[in-house]
Design a protein around this nucleic acid. Structure first.
Length: 857
RNA sequence: GCCGGCUUGGCGGAAUUGGUAGACGCGCUCGACUCAAAAUCGAGUUCUAACGAGUGUGGGUUCGAGUCCCACAGCCGGUACCA
């Protein structure tokens, strides 16, 4: 592309300002205890979701959220806050490892290069991060504390009485056996069905499996021994403590659904000498249970199946085991199942009901067995209809027009249920639970969909588990803390070998710890580092603690302010993974008094996705990816920042339009040319339009004060698009004015500064050379401007006059006109009278200062 | 299927939360400057020749509805038999 002349010389001054901010550490913020720390200022912690430094470099989606938080941070600093606004790298991750496998380049080299690119690109956009606090999850000094927190989990159990984590050493002193203790640790080893990807040679968490499958990786179910984190212990708190947070309701809902709390009861049925426990949310419908279903994998199936049915049952189990996940979840799929030949006794009425197995009952949820109430459950109804099983109504819907078959609602009362008859559903539910407990054949039970978090991966590029295995006893032990960090061994070949122990098994020397102990070969998932990075920023160079209590209390404490991170901006894709995991770790740390709040992120905002110019999601294959480097080269950093904020509301999904960047660039050029003109030699010099004289309450002055008010409000509500349009209006007013006073113009620069820091600082500097009285300090360090109410009030206002709700005239009236004056003026209007001709006035609605509506008939 | 969100000019989007619909920007049209073009500046731009109509569709509440209520449709996102 031909190198066009820039509309203003951003290519010169933007890098110069960036260098100055970097060299002078303009945006460094000190911690309590530092010599230059100002304890009188309140704090705000403004956080971005840190990026995975991919080889592709920065995407235009990154600067969207990052610009928003940068504007807020710059605004708050200028309003007297100590602002913590850091950046770092989520640098463990699969792509670096895959790339390493392909090229032989060690992941640490690729990662370092990618980080350099990302850092350069972010600095090129003029973000006001405190770069002294930069962290990378792959840094050995960081890994040390990730492993340290893991050991904390390993050495903890969840005390269900106190509802908090406690050290397992407590249990030792109470005489618990090693085996008992291992069964309650927050980090534990368990064998179970897991998602295994042969392509990647690793297992994945439930939460991740679908994402990777959609990227084209094969995922199978496989029985393996893995490290798990007992996140389910925190299920209740993860739901309850979500409530007061200032998060989008939709994200809270997503988390609530993911945790999936349900209240019901466990009911014990008998089958010969066996007890079969089912879970139900509708114990009230127990009299309507006409059959029972076990999941095909249920442990009792083998024992209860009658000889005649044995073959059919085995065949069905085999079919289910071979089914892929996709087939299992196929929506249109018909219900399938097989009778076991056995019968169970319903404890409330002694009735015998047949026991079936069917794959619509899942092994992993509840007890893996259900009582089927076909009259009041859609799935049971479908199954019963297909296999000709009896259907007994036990709930009569309140609305008589509703058919009772397959009525699943709660608005009804009980029938055919002996002592429950006539009771409304909720009361019957409570009564039945009480009855079951009295009879000793059931109890109230809360269930969650959330499963424990599969935490180990068979990868090279991740934090190794700080765990040793005792060859003699087969037991695991924590690595002594003074041996942290435990880094991966240097290896040439970390290809997945199909060995479910992962690539580290190949490092024989590393595995060998002593004659008695060998190292754990699994590594942690990428989430480990991102679970607590926001805490490391508080005190990133601390070698003695993961964070000092003083720094933690100041930046995360409540101290009259909202506690925790005050603003966290990032994409929705982390709604259930990162945000759930991080909350879990934070709560464990909170239980130990290591952090001050029970929740890490007080306020969360999701930025909307930026689509390609074609309205489609940006992707390499579509060829619609916009590279921020190109935009900065062509239009400058201020232009891309401002454009991304101007596109629309931060939260909305919006398509990219390079023409729109041009429009923004024109706006910035107009701001520039109010103060600057090119002389004969083609140099920019201060224009004669600028005057040091106070021109008084000109329209420009009034517009400026309205702009200051609007921008101040809009930054607080994060409505950046409307703030920018207001600044455009102000600029247009200054452009069309004959002459602009220096004070008014600099006022505009002040409010534009957080959005477009480079051009505003440069103009302020250039004007400072011309006008010696202008404060020389950077705008970023000066107080935020206030507005004067006196300039906001208008003497007259245009008042719309409607006849029967239709606009018929507009009248210029004093702002403080009374009702009577307004009505009189409206009725006197010739335009209005035309529309009233021949009709009588029924009513006149007057809204003072707003409008007049004349109702005629 | 269930849950959530969205739907306003040719396009991105505004609208003091029930009070002049279309701010601001893009695009387009015309004009000024120029030998010419680009850039810049100025004027115009919801539709309609006009009467009028108009915020996905249909109904309702109200003096007045983009905004509130009811029903429906379309698009986007999440989720997948959780008993």
């Amino acid at each position: 592309m031909a190198d066009r002349k820039k509309p203003y010389p951003f290519d010169e001054f933007e890098p110069a300002w960036q260098k100055r901010w970097d060299d002078q550490k303009t945006f460094r913020v000190s911690n309590p205890g530092d010599p230059d720390f100002d304890a009188s200022k309140p704090k705000r912690y403004i956080l971005d979701m840190f990026p995975y430094p991919s080889g592709a470099g920065l995407h235009v989606g990154h600067p969207e959220g990052y610009t928003a938080t940068d504007i807020v941070s710059r605004f708050l600093r200028r309003n007297g806050y100590n602002v913590l606004h850091p950046m770092g790298w989520d640098s463990f991750g699969l792509p670096a490892e895959q790339y390493a496998i392909k090229t032989g380049q060690h992941p640490s080299i690729t990662t370092a290069a990618n980080i350099d690119t990302f850092r350069r690109q972010l600095k090129m956009l003029g973000f006001s991060y405190d770069w002294d606090r930069e962290i990378a999850t792959t840094d050995s000094k960081y890994v040390r504390w990730t492993q340290w927190i893991f050991l904390r989990l390993y050495n903890s159990y969840y005390d269900t009485e106190l509802k908090k984590a406690r050290p397992v050493s407590e249990l030792e002193s109470r005489g618990w056996t090693r085996e008992q203790i291992d069964s309650v640790r927050l980090a534990y080893v368990a064998e179970g069905m897991v998602n295994w990807s042969p392509d990647m040679g690793t297992v994945l968490a439930n939460e991740e499996a679908e994402e990777w499958r959609s990227k084209g990786f094969t995922i199978e179910r496989r029985k393996l021994r893995q490290w798990m984190l007992r996140i389910t212990a925190y299920a209740e708190r993860l739901i309850d403590e979500l409530e007061p947070l200032d998060w989008p309701e939709s994200i809270k809902l997503l988390q609530r659904n993911w945790i999936g709390k349900s209240t019901g009861a466990e009911v014990v049925f008998t089958c010969g000498e066996h007890n079969i426990t089912v879970y139900t949310t509708r114990p009230d419908t127990l009299f309507g249970a006409t059959y029972m279903v076990l999941s095909p994998e249920h442990s009792l199936v083998e024992q209860i199946t009658s000889p005649e049915q044995r073959e059919a049952v085995r065949a069905y189990q085999k079919v289910c085991a071979e089914k892929s996940d996709l087939e299992r979840t196929d929506l249109s799929k018909e219900k399938t199942g097989v009778f076991t030949g056995a019968y169970a006794i319903n404890p409330v009425n002694g009735r015998e009901i047949p026991i079936w197995i069917a794959d619509y009952v899942l092994t992993g949820y509840g007890t893996g067995a259900i009582m089927a109430v076909p009259a009041h459950d859609e799935r049971d109804y479908e199954f019963a209809t297909k296999f000709g099983l009896p259907i007994i109504q036990v709930v009569q819907p309140d609305d008589p027009s509703t058919p009772w078959q397959d009525f699943c609602g709660y608005d009804g009362s009980m029938v055919n249920s002996e002592y429950l008859n006539g009771l409304p559903v909720p009361e019957a539910k409570a009564m039945m639970i009480q009855k079951l407990e009295e009879m000793g054949c059931g109890r109230g039970k809360v269930n969650y969909k959330l499963r424990d978090w599969l935490f180990s991966r068979q990868r090279y590029w991740g934090e190794p588990f700080p765990i040793l295995w005792d060859k003699e006893t087969g037991l695991h032990h924590p690595l002594p803390e003074n041996e942290l960090p435990l880094l991966q061994p240097e290896m040439e070949d970390f290809k997945p070998s199909g060995d479910p122990r992962g690539p580290l098994v190949k490092a024989q020397d590393w595995i060998h710890y002593s004659d008695r102990y060998t190292r754990e070969t699994n590594t942690m998932p990428q989430w480990a580092g991102s679970c607590w990075y926001y805490l490391r920023y508080l005190d990133p160079h601390n070698d003695r603690e993961f964070v000092s209590p003083e720094a933690e209390r100041y930046w995360m404490g409540s101290g009259g302010n909202p506690g925790g991170v005050d603003l966290y901006v990032g994409g929705t894709e982390h709604a259930v993974l990162h945000l759930l995991y991080a909350r879990f770790w934070h709560k464990v740390l909170f239980d130990y008094g290591l952090v001050s709040t029970n929740e890490p992120f007080n306020k969360l905002v999701n930025q909307g996705l930026i689509l390609g110019e074609d309205g489609q999601k940006m992707s390499k294959s579509r060829g619609n990816v916009v590279n921020p480097d190109d935009i900065v080269r062509e239009y400058g950093a201020d232009a891309i920042r401002l454009y991304e904020m101007f596109m629309g509301p931060l939260k909305e999904v919006k398509p990219w339009a390079t023409k729109g960047v041009e429009g923004i660039s024109r706006f910035l050029a107009r701001v520039w040319r109010i103060a600057m003109v090119e002389n004969q030699e083609g140099e920019w010099v201060v224009s004669g339009k600028m005057t040091a004289q106070d021109l008084g309450a000109t329209p420009v002055r009034r517009e400026l004060h309205r702009t200051i008010k609007k921008v101040t409000e809009d930054i607080r509500s994060m409505s950046f698009n409307t703030a920018i349009s207001k600044m455009m209006e102000c600029t247009n007013a200054m452009t069309s004015a004959e002459s602009v006073s220096l004070a008014d113009y600099v006022g505009l620069l002040h409010v534009l500064n957080p959005f477009a820091p480079h051009i505003t600082e440069e103009l302020n500097r250039l004007l400072g050379e011309q006008f010696p009285d202008l404060p020389k300090q950077q705008l970023a360090l000066q107080p935020w401007p206030g507005f004067d109410e006196a300039f906001l009030v208008d003497l007259t206002k245009e008042i719309p006059v409607q006849v029967n709700g239709k606009l018929r005239d507009k009248l210029q009236m004093p702002t403080d006109a009374t009702r009577e004056q307004m009505e009189e003026a409206a009725l006197a209007s010739p335009r209005v009278q035309e529309f009233m001709a021949g009709k009588s006035v029924r009513k006149v609605v007057v809204v003072p200062g707003r409008l007049v509506n004349i109702v005629v008939a």
